[in-house]
Design a protein around this nucleic acid. Sequence first.
DNA 1: GATTGGCCCCAAGGACCCTT
DNA 2: AAGGGTCCTTGGGGCCAATC
Length: 632
Amino acid sequence: MSPSDLKETAAEISEWDEFYRSVTKYGFSKNFFKKENIVLPGIKTFFSIPVESTEKSDFSSVAILDETADSKDTVLKVLNILYDKFQVGQLTNYVIVVGDGKSYDHLIKLKSEYGEQMDWVLAYPGDWHIYKNVLPIFVKIYFDAGLRQLATKHHHGATLKVLTECSKFAVTHRTYETAGKPPSRKRRNLKTFAPIKITIHKQKKEIKDQNTVISCLRKKIAFSKHSGNAVKDLDQFLQLPRALCDAEGIPEKGQKATAANVFKNIYSDAFLLQVPKAPVSSKTTVIIDAGGFDDDRKARAISILKGQVVDYDLASGNHEEADTRVWLHASVTTADQVIIYSPDTDVFFIGLPLVSDLNKTVYVQLRDSPYNNSFLSMDKLVKCITLNDSLLQGIDSVLICMQLLFIYSGCDFVSYFRGCGKKTFFDVFRKHASFIVGNGSFSDVHGHNGLYSFYRLICSVYFSKHRAAAFQPYSTPKSLFDSISEGDLHEKHISFISAIREKLWERVVTEVEMMPNHEALKLHWMRCCWVFDYWSQSTSNTHALSDLSKCGWQITDNRLEIVWDTVLNFQKVEKNYSGDQVLDMSIDLDDVISDDTEEFEDPVEVEQPELDGLVEQLDQTDDYWLFSTEEI
DNA sequence: GATTGGCCCCAAGGACCCTT
DNA sequence: AAGGGTCCTTGGGGCCAATC
């Protein structure tokens, strides 16, 4: 490497010349004109003076400041200027002229006065017109709510007919339509007062929840001021982690398809318009269908090999979903090129860590669309992620990480995080990859390190969402994490989560926006690990999976339910916020905790022994969780 | 799946104030 | 008067969620 290697590009040279010329021009002019007693404006203003190369706007303004705005003469004058500016008759045939109520009125009058001469003017009613459209709706809603009385006062005693029929607005649609060929208009969406479609039941629950949180917050702040102590511990007023589920405990759903779009944007090289023609030497191609047909073949998984339709139930073992079964088939088939038809984005995420071991060329056909690249080359995708993504260099088992990321952020089996979509998750992960992954611990789904990585991921996501305001002076999640010095790795992560949750309280309005507490997160993570285990066994005939009830779910009356939080936390919240005056406004606790709450098994077994002691302690002091530990 | 509306962040620019 | 700083408004973009 020598200095001569550092040659400027042609573009850089031209940029520099341009810069040099501009600055010199400014400096020289300024200095020169000073002698002539002419003062040039500042450099910022100077550079914004248009020159020949300045891009011309197709937007023109007409100065009429000195004229009376709403007189007929002014409108006529403006129309004459416009006629010249737009060279009507030569370059243009029609000009759309937008006017507010009064000028629109003039326009129409002038048009009828001048007849054919004004055909080029297409009058368009401006924003003012909207009021007329909305007014009847207002009237309808508020007529009996005091509007009747107001109207007689404000319309100088005019009859209510004026109000209900909008007859004081001189110009109506009818005259507008007869004024000439209507121009194609940009569609406007009118805001109406149509009721939002949420069931009243659901709405009531949400409102109750909000009120509870607000009153609790007020109480909490008041107490904190009173005692001079910062409020600690759970930072939660509702029993369910509302970022993950609604007031009924129904998991949050999100859009999976965006994950595919995210990949399309980042790794566009892997998405093809069609499968490349196989070379002559290539032997066989198999097409596997993941259940995309709508006829009787829907339930069957089929494949086409050498023009023959073959059922592959034989090899399907105890796979329950076509999504994983396709990969089993891709693995056992003798063909060396595999095309999988799948309308579901799950499929390529399932296969992501598996394809390298298959030693086959695998393509996934995504949903048919003539405008999109709908074939995904798995090999190219793997290359894009492992080799070409500069943000992910040096990350261990990055393919597994991507799959886990997809699961963590929500899929068919586990809930999504409200307000945090796939895009956010992938962006945050790529941005803070080394911090989140640590020493390859992200993919450690059976140990503590995997959980800690998951914690770091979720914290980073919420950090990024509120980064601008909430976490000064820390600019990255890592710097905040590093600022926590106390305790071992576990305690450090718990403090990390608490720190973020505490800050979030200053920003959020409802608990829906809150990051779940660390135990709720852990339960979510356990469910995710189960899914990961399930997916990673796609290519084997049979699955060996852990008991669901040990992985964040519980089975009551043959029904699978999600365990959202530990019993301890449920009780903390209940103890905390149902004892006194808050009760009036609080959620009906019987509604939220279903009847079988008492039978809850604490899914985190390690914590079971502590439970009894703590509950007893809770019984003694109602306000336990508002006091810091020392005060008890 | 595509469209649309809502929300947030950010950049740009104007108003205003202060300093040089 | 120029320049810099702060505060505020505005418009655009990105993203998510609701809707059909």
